[in-house]
Design a protein around this nucleic acid. Structure first.
Lengths: 349, 349
DNA sequence: AGCGTCTCAGCAAGCGCTTTCTATTCAATA
DNA sequence: TATTGAATAGAAAGCGCTTGCTGAGACGCT
C-alpha cells in the first residue's frame, strides 16, 4: 500500500491534521512537532496525494498552457517562458505548480476539449497562446468556456492572442497589424512595388492581422493590391515553398515576398533559390517572429521580432497573480522590425 | 455553486451511482436511463470533478512528458507525436487523457521535482525524453523514483534515453553511438583527417554516446584523436558558433566540423562563414537529428536523421498500453545518415 | 407455479486530504 | 491566586466521486 497522511501522523505521534498543517505551512505548529513530522515524512518517503488534496481544498496546482503547435519554436519559446514563471520546480518556494502544455494543433475542437479537461481538473490558471480561430460559433463556445473557467476561479490569460471581450480574461496581444505594416513599409521604402504575400491559414486572427497590416502599408503608398498576389497556406516551411512557386507562376516579375512567419519565409527562400533567383538581389524576402534560426539563414532574415519570452514570462506572472494585469485587462505588445540581409532594393528590370 | 454529480442525479431522477456509471460507461445502464442522464448533464452543463474522480477511483488521466527543453524542436516534435497518441482530445474515444509536458531545462533537480509532482498526481504514465544526466547520485535518485512510480502502477517509458535498469521502465533508445560513428565515417571516407568535434554538455548520455561514436570512427581508421579537437558546449546555436571559433583558433587547418546536433551545426556554419571560410569547399560541417530547418540551411546540412515522430508515437502507444513493449523492455532505434550539401571532400592544401 | 438467472438501479462505505471548531496548556496579567 | 488569552494540537465533518454489494423486477426454464 501507499503511504498516507495517517501513516505519517501515526509515526510522528500526532494527528493527521497536524501533518497536513506542517506540509502546508499555513498554520502555526511548534518547531519540535514540525521536525518530528518532517522526519516521519522523510522516513516513510511520503508523497502527498494530489487528487485528495485538490478535492478537499477545492483548488489544484495545475496550470494549463494551450499552444497551437508544440513542435513550433514560436510556441515552445512562449511555453518555456511561462513555465519558468509558473515556478514549477525551481521557482520560488511555496507554490509548486504543474504546468500542463496542451497541444491543440490549431483545431477548434481540441481547444475546447482541452479547456474542458482543464476545467475538470479545476486548474488554477489557463493560458492560451497564439492566434485564435476566427469562426463565430467556435469563438462563442470558447468565450463561454473561458467565462465559466473565470467564474470558477481559474485565472485566464491570453498571450499573443486577441482579447476575448466579456470573459474576464487578461489579454497580452501582439501588434501583428502594426508589425506587418512596418515590414511592408520597409520594403516599399526600399523601392519595391510588386510584393507577393504568403499568408497563414485562413480564419486565424494572426493571419488576418498581419495581412491587414501589409495591405494598409500598400494602400498608404498608393500601391494597388492585386488579390492574386496573396496566397494562403499553413505556418510551415513547406507551405512557404509551394506558395512561392505559385506566386512566381502568377507573376514572375515579383521583387519581394512577404511571409506570414519565419518558417514560411525560409521555405520561400528555398523556392526562390531553386528557381534560380538570388536573395535579395533578385527578390527580397521578409518573415515574421524572428525565431532563433532566422538569423542563421543565408542571407539572414529581415523580420519582425516579437518578444516571445518576455510576453510569456509576463503572462505567467499574471496568471500566478504575481503581477498586476494591465489596465483594462488588455496590453498590446509591439514587434520590432529587424532589417537584415534578405531584403534589399529591387532589381532594375 | 458548481454543479455536482448529485445535482445531475436529482435532475435525471436516478442515483448518483447511475450517473457515474453512465459517464464512465463501464457498467450496463438501460438506454432510456442513459439518455435521461445525458440530457441532464447537458442541461446543467455539468463537468466532472477530476480530483474527486481520481481520488475515488485511485487513478488519474494525467500523462506526464518530461523534456529537457521545450523550445527545442527536437523535444517539441517528440512531445507532439506522443501527445497525438496519448489521444488527448481527438484521440480514440474513451481515454481522454491530459498530456502534461514538463520542461526540466536539463536540470536534475527539476527533473526529480517534476517526477514527484507527477507521482503526487498519481499520473497514469510518465514518458521521459532525451538524454539523461550522467551523475551517479542523481541517476540513482531518478531510478529510485521511476521504480516507485512503476510500483504505484504508473507506466514509465523512456524515449530517446538510455535504459534505466531495474526500474521497470520501457526504453526506446536512439543509437547515438552508431549514428555518430556513421557520420564521422562518412567524412573520413570523403578524405577528411583533421576533424573538429563540438560536443554537447558534459555529463549527458547523448553527448557521451555521440562523441564515442565519433571517436570509434576515428580510431577505426587510425586517425589519432587529439583531445584539443573536441570542445564541449550546450546544445544551441550560440554554443556552436563560439566552439567553432575556438576550434579554428586551436587548429586553422581543420577540414571538417562535426557538431553534437543541428542547431550547433548551424552555429558552426555561421562562424565559419564569418571567418571567411566556405562550406563545404573549405570546411565540411555535419549535424545530428535532422530537424526540419536543417534542410533549409545553405548548404543543406549533412546529418543523422532520428525518427523523432515515430519514436514519440511508439512511446505514446506503449505508455497507453496500446502497443506491446519491445522484448526485454528495450528497443534501439537507429538513425539514418543524410548526406547533403554541407559535406564534401577536404580542400587540398 | 416455482425457481434460478439476468439486467439494471440504489445504498452506503469509503478514497486521503483540509479545515472549522473545540480542547488543552501555559504564561502573563489583574 | 484567579483570570485571560495566546499558542498549539486534535476530533470530526466533509470535499465529490466510485464501486462492491444488495435488491427488485423480468424472463425463461422445468
Amino acid at each position: 500500500m501507499t503511504v498516507t497522511l495517517a501513516d505519517v501522523a501515526a509515526r510522528a505521534q500526532v494527528s493527521p491534521a497536524t501533518v497536513s498543517r506542517v506540509l502546508n505551512g499555513n498554520y502555526p505548529v511548534a518547531a519540535s512537532t514540525r521536525e518530528r513530522v518532517l522526519r516521519a515524512v522523510d522516513e516513510l518517503d511520503y508523497v502527498l496525494n494530489g487528487p485528495a488534496s485538490a478535492l478537499a481544498a477545492a483548488t489544484s496546482d495545475l496550470v494549463g498552457i494551450l499552444v497551437n503547435d508544440i513542435a513550433d519554436p514560436f510556441f515552445g519559446i512562449m511555453a518555456s517562458a511561462i513555465q519558468a514563471e509558473i515556478g514549477g520546480p525551481g521557482g520560488r518556494a511555496g507554490g509548486e505548480r504543474l504546468a500542463v502544455v496542451c497541444n491543440t494543433g490549431g483545431s477548434p475542437e481540441r481547444e475546447l476539449t482541452y479547456l474542458t479537461l482543464l476545467q475538470r481538473q479545476r486548474a488554477a490558471a489557463v493560458i492560451l497562446t497564439g492566434g485564435a480561430v476566427e469562426n463565430a460559433p467556435h469563438a462563442a463556445a470558447v468565450a463561454a468556456k473561458l467565462r465559466k473557467l473565470a467564474d470558477a476561479g481559474t485565472r485566464v490569460v491570453l498571450c499573443g492572442r486577441p482579447p476575448a471581450p466579456d470573459t474576464g480574461a487578461i489579454a497580452l496581444t501582439f501588434d501583428n497589424r502594426g508589425g506587418g505594416r512596418e515590414l511592408t513599409e520597409h520594403l516599399i521604402g526600399l523601392g519595391h512595388r510588386r510584393l507577393g504575400y504568403i499568408a497563414g491559414p485562413e480564419e486565424r486572427t494572426t493571419t488576418r492581422h498581419r495581412l491587414e497590416g501589409h495591405r494598409a502599408a500598400l494602400e498608404a503608398h498608393g500601391i494597388e493590391d492585386d488579390a492574386g498576389r496573396t496566397v494562403y497556406g499553413r505556418y510551415d516551411r513547406r507551405s512557404g515553398y509551394e506558395a512561392t512557386l505559385e506566386l512566381l507562376r502568377r507573376d514572375p516579375s515579383l521583387t519581394a515576398v512577404v511571409a506570414a512567419n519565419d518558417s514560411v519565409a525560409l521555405g520561400a527562400c528555398a523556392a526562390l533559390r531553386d528557381s534560380g533567383l538570388r536573395i535579395p538581389e533578385d527578390v527580397s524576402v521578409a518573415g515574421f517572429d524572428d525565431l532563433p534560426f532566422s538569423i542563421d539563414a543565408v542571407p539572414s532574415l529581415t523580420t519582425v521580432r516579437l518578444p516571445l519570452s518576455e510576453a510569456g514570462a509576463r503572462a505567467g506572472r499574471i496568471a500566478m497573480g504575481r503581477e498586476e494585469p494591465p489596465p483594462g485587462g488588455i496590453a498590446t505588445i509591439r514587434g520590432e522590425l529587424m532589417v537584415r540581409g534578405s531584403s534589399g532594393g529591387p532589381r532594375v528590370s
